[in-house]
Each structure stands twice: as C-alpha cells, then as structure tokens.
Simulated assay, not measured.
Amino acid sequence: MPLKTNRIESIDILRGVVMVIMALDHVRDYFHYGSFFSNPTNLETTTPFLFFTRFITHYCAPVFVFLAGTSAFLYGSKKTKPELFKFLFTRGIWLVFLEIAVNNLIWWFDINYGFVVLQVIWAIGLSMVILSFLIFLPKQILIAIGFIIILGHNLLDTILLKGESIGAILWYILHQGSQITTDSNRLIGIYYPILPWVGVIILGYSFGHFYAKNFNASIRKKWLLILGFAAIALFFIVRGSNVYGDLVPWTIQDTSTKTILSFFNVSKYPPSLSYLLITLGPALLFLYGIETVKNKFTDFFLVFGRVPLFYYFLHIFVIHVLAIIGILIFGGNWQDMILTAEAFQNANLINYGYSLMVVYMVWAGVIILLYFPSKKYMVYKATNKDKWWLSYL
C-alpha cells in the first residue's frame, strides 16, 4: 500500500537521484587509486572516464542546497513566518553541529578531531540560519538578492587574504575558503565558503512558489523549461566568453578531448557562476521531465530523496567501513584508513586504491545495501509525523 503523503514526488525523486550520484564520488574518494593525493579534474593526469565520474557528481551539492531552500518554502507554507524562522534557525545550527561533531568523525574516524573539514552540511546549515532572517523580506527583493549573489559573487574572486586574523577567517568562511590551524594544532578546512550557497538556497526558497498548493502545473512546467534552458544557454555564453564566471578560464589543449574537458572544468570551491548554471539548469529540466513519471525507477530514487540526512551520514560510514575491510582483505594496514591530518602528509596511502571499475562496482553495492534501511526509515517518518524531532533528521 503506498504511503499517504503531501510531499511533492518530483522534488524528492531529483533529490534521490543526486544522493545516489553523490555516493559515487565518495566511493571514488575512498577506493580509487591515488584519490587521496590527486585531483580527478587535473587535465595533466585525468582520463575522460575519470573526469566524467567527477563531473557528474558536481550536480549533487547545488541541487541539494537548492532543494533545501525549496523544502523550506514548502514547510513554511503551512506555518507562520515566526514558526518558519524558528525552524530554519534551529535546524541550521543543528546541521552545523552535525557537520563538526558527526560528519568529521565518520569521514576520518579520528576521535581526536585533528582534521575538521566544513563541507556541504555546514554550508546548508549556515545558509539556513541566514535564510531564516531573509524570509521576512518581500518576495521580489529576496529573488533579487539571490540573483545578485549568484551572478555577481565572482567579482570577489580577486580579493585574496592570507593569515589567520579574524578578518581573514571571516573572508574564508564567506567567499575565499582556506585552511587554518588552531592553537591546539588542529587543522580546519573551510572548503564550502557560504556566500554563493546562500544565493543558491535563496533562489531555491523562491523557486518553491512554483510548487505552492494552487499553482497551475502547466505554468510551472513552462517556467521549468524556460529557466532550465536559459541557465544552460547562459552557461555556454559565460563560459565561452572566458572573461568572467569562473576562477579558472578554459584553455586550448593539445587534443580536442582535453579542450572539451578544460571547458567543462568549472570551479566548485567556491561554486562559480558557470558551475551553478551547468548544474542547476539541467536539474530544472529534470524536474520538468519527471513531474508526471511514476514507475519502479522513480519509486527507487524516491526512497533516498525522502531521507537525505539519514542516508548521507549512513552512506559515508558504510563506505569508510568497506574501505577498511578492503584493506584487511588485501593485506594492508587498516589503521591507514584512520585519516588523521598526518595521514595526508605521509606516504602510507600513496599506492593505495583500486580501478574505476571496482569503484563503480562498490558504488552499486553500497546503493543496494542502503536502500533497505533507507526505505524502512522513510516508512517510519511517514507514519510518525507527530514526532516533531523527525523534521530535524
């Protein structure tokens, strides 16, 4: 018997698809040869297959953040603005805590927290806190702020600070990103500076109006087509001009294939205008195409899309454990997979890893394995809507 829910299936399906794709990138992180010390988008060392494996996962973070904003709007459509403010503010703080305390532990298995990385959960959390204040603004002003941030934040790329002054650290958090070392010799990596992500969550929140209860579906689909194709077209214009919109301009390479890779080698840290256009544009077209589709495949992805936070933490833990099991099977030292700051400074993992074929096989196994607990938790959430704390998980 299907579960009764007011959730919008197309949004959950899209979220589920990117959650599944996300696991591919994280399996690659833990299993691919040289992954701890090399960049899969480095044109000097990558292959088209490896580059595509990384590029396809670029869709995960922006779609995840964008739909977090959309979900916030849909949640708030049944609440007062003060109630929505309270939810966004407290859930945002909660997500920041989870990033620091839980996510870092399962990523590194270092109980001393010698290496703390602030990633997408942190970015969503802080963006939610900021959004909690912005929701009181008129809709038109909020949309304008979102577009100004997305279209204009690359103007700040030339502002580069060094050191660990308060001003520099705030700038790292806001736009530049960097690593800092605390007095206790703890390394903190700020890899998701929040300014562009705030723009993404604002536009995602504003996008939620298309899914308001009485909004005309045909008009919504028309706008999905317009916005999706416009974003992709703007990507080719901005990226093709090669004068703005990304930290790293593309260049003519010694082969046509490498030139194409250079063109699509857009910057994620922080997410450039080009990066956001080529990821969010196709995502909007996906929403257009999937809106009326209902089959076993969409039901499969729906499961992951309805329990994203649960799935996120579980899949990182499972992948990390499987990496340890793999080392033990092949006679390595399992302690090498306790990823302290020192682990990235020695050569213990320099020759570690498996082929991309193994990466894809492990990825498929992880998704199949996690489907069952994710579905069980999805059913639990759907049948226990009276438990307020489930909205934080």
Rank of each mutant, 00 (worst) to 15 (best):
N39Q: 13
T70Y: 08
F55L: 09
T41W: 14
H58E: 05
S35W: 03
A68K: 09
T46S: 04
D110L: 09
F51G: 00
V63K: 01
I93W: 01
S35P: 00
T80C: 14
L50R: 08
F97V: 08
W108M: 02
A101R: 00
L88N: 12
E44S: 04
S71N: 07
N42W: 04
W108T: 13
G76I: 06
K86V: 05
L43E: 07
F109T: 03
S71I: 10
C60T: 14
T70H: 04
I56Y: 09
P82E: 05
R91T: 03
G92R: 01
F55C: 00
L105R: 07
R91W: 02
P82Y: 02
L43Q: 05
P62H: 00
Y33Q: 14
Y75L: 13
F37Y: 15
F66D: 07
G34S: 10
T53Y: 07
P48F: 06
F64I: 11
N104D: 10
F109K: 04
R91G: 00
F36Y: 13
I111Y: 12
D110P: 07
Y75V: 00
T46V: 10
K79E: 07
L50T: 14
W94C: 14
W94G: 12
V96G: 11
F55R: 02
L74H: 00
T80D: 07
N42G: 12
A68C: 11
L74C: 06
P40E: 09
N39Y: 15
D110R: 02
S77G: 03
P40I: 10
A68V: 08
T90G: 03
K81T: 09
G34W: 15
R91A: 03
T41R: 15
Y75P: 00
N39K: 12
L50C: 03
Y59N: 11
N103A: 14
I93M: 14
S77F: 06
T46P: 00
L67R: 10
V65F: 07
F109N: 04
F73V: 07
T57A: 10
L84D: 13
T90N: 10
K86S: 15
L50E: 15
S77E: 11
Y33F: 15
F97L: 06
G92V: 11
G34N: 06
K78Y: 14
V102I: 10
P48G: 05
K79N: 12
G92I: 03
F85M: 09
L98F: 13
V65Y: 12
P48W: 04
L95F: 08
L74E: 05
R91D: 01
V102G: 08
F64N: 03
D110M: 02
F55M: 08
C60Q: 06
F52D: 07
L88Q: 08
P40Y: 10
T80M: 04
F36A: 06
P82R: 06
A68W: 06
I111C: 04
L105M: 15
G34D: 09
P82H: 06
E99Y: 04
N104R: 14
Y59G: 15
F73P: 03
D110S: 05
N42I: 08
P62E: 02
F97N: 01
S77T: 10
F85W: 11
Y75D: 03
F49Y: 11
E83Q: 15
P48T: 02
